[in-house]
Simulated assay, not measured.
Amino acid sequence: MTDTLLSAALVEEAAKKSGLIWVRGEAPAARPLWHVWHDGAAHVVGDGPGEQPLPGLRDGGTAEVTVRSKDKGGRIVAWTAGVRELTPGTEEWDAAVAELKGKRLNAPDGEAMPERWARECRLVRLDPRTATTELPDGSLAAVPLPSPGITRRPVPAGLPKLLLKRKRRRKA
């Protein structure tokens, strides 16, 4: 019982302090989503013009949520969430939108944003089902793809001469 309460408190506190959560629904990869923690669950809005995509989050499904540290970026906690889409105009939807509205940065329509969300977007509630899941041992970092932009090449022969000329001009 105490472990369950501590795990639930960890999930809530970590999600409240983090600006992004990493969510993997039925899509193959996790995506970072901005959210707000309200009424015991994470709420995300998206799938509309100018909003974040919510791939793989379907009503009645589940999702794996990972919360990372805001300052260091390391994983703090991971949990399984039940996905529930909220219906516009309900009391629950209005309360969640009031919280989300204050956190939405660079909205193109300002005060008209809630009406646009009701017309064109989805508001999804991610309810924690299991307090925590096992964190993987490895980093889960993908190996970078080969690219000429990251490959070191020899310094061009004329570059040292150009750099020395600049230094001489500054001294004079």
Score class of each variant (00 low, 15 high):
149 G>L: 15
118 A>D: 05
6 L>P: 10
41 A>Y: 00
66 T>G: 09
133 T>D: 13
109 D>P: 03
166 R>G: 10
147 S>F: 00
84 R>F: 02
108 P>N: 05
52 Q>A: 14
98 A>E: 11
107 A>V: 11
34 W>C: 12
143 V>Y: 10
40 G>F: 00
165 K>D: 10
168 R>P: 04
86 L>D: 05
84 R>E: 11
6 L>E: 15
159 L>Y: 10
28 P>C: 04
149 G>V: 10
6 L>R: 14
129 R>V: 07
109 D>I: 15
72 K>P: 04
143 V>M: 14
3 D>E: 15
64 E>D: 14
64 E>F: 06
16 K>S: 11
117 W>L: 08
48 G>S: 00
49 P>A: 09
25 G>W: 03
151 T>L: 12
117 W>A: 06
50 G>I: 00
121 C>M: 15
85 E>L: 08
163 L>M: 10
126 L>M: 05
17 K>D: 15
30 A>N: 00
19 G>I: 02
86 L>C: 08
146 P>W: 02
44 V>P: 04
82 G>F: 11
85 E>F: 03
55 P>R: 02
154 P>A: 13
76 I>A: 07
25 G>D: 05
164 L>G: 05
166 R>H: 12
10 L>M: 14
104 R>N: 10
129 R>A: 05
113 M>K: 08
132 T>K: 11
42 A>F: 04
113 M>S: 12
81 A>Y: 05
42 A>H: 05
43 H>Q: 06
166 R>W: 08
147 S>L: 00
168 R>M: 06
114 P>Q: 03
47 D>G: 01
69 S>Q: 07
95 A>L: 03
130 T>N: 14
35 H>A: 01
90 T>G: 03
98 A>M: 03
94 D>K: 11
27 A>P: 05
131 A>K: 06
9 A>F: 12
61 G>F: 03
52 Q>G: 10
73 G>S: 07
10 L>D: 10
137 D>K: 13
83 V>T: 07
167 K>T: 11
132 T>Y: 07
162 L>W: 11
92 E>A: 08
46 G>A: 01
136 P>Q: 04
134 E>R: 10
144 P>E: 04
100 L>W: 08
62 T>A: 10
44 V>A: 07
64 E>P: 02
65 V>G: 00
16 K>P: 06
65 V>D: 00
141 A>V: 13
89 G>S: 01
96 A>F: 01
62 T>M: 09
115 E>A: 15
69 S>H: 15
27 A>T: 07
158 G>F: 12
170 R>L: 13
76 I>P: 02
61 G>K: 06
40 G>P: 01
24 R>D: 06
155 V>T: 14
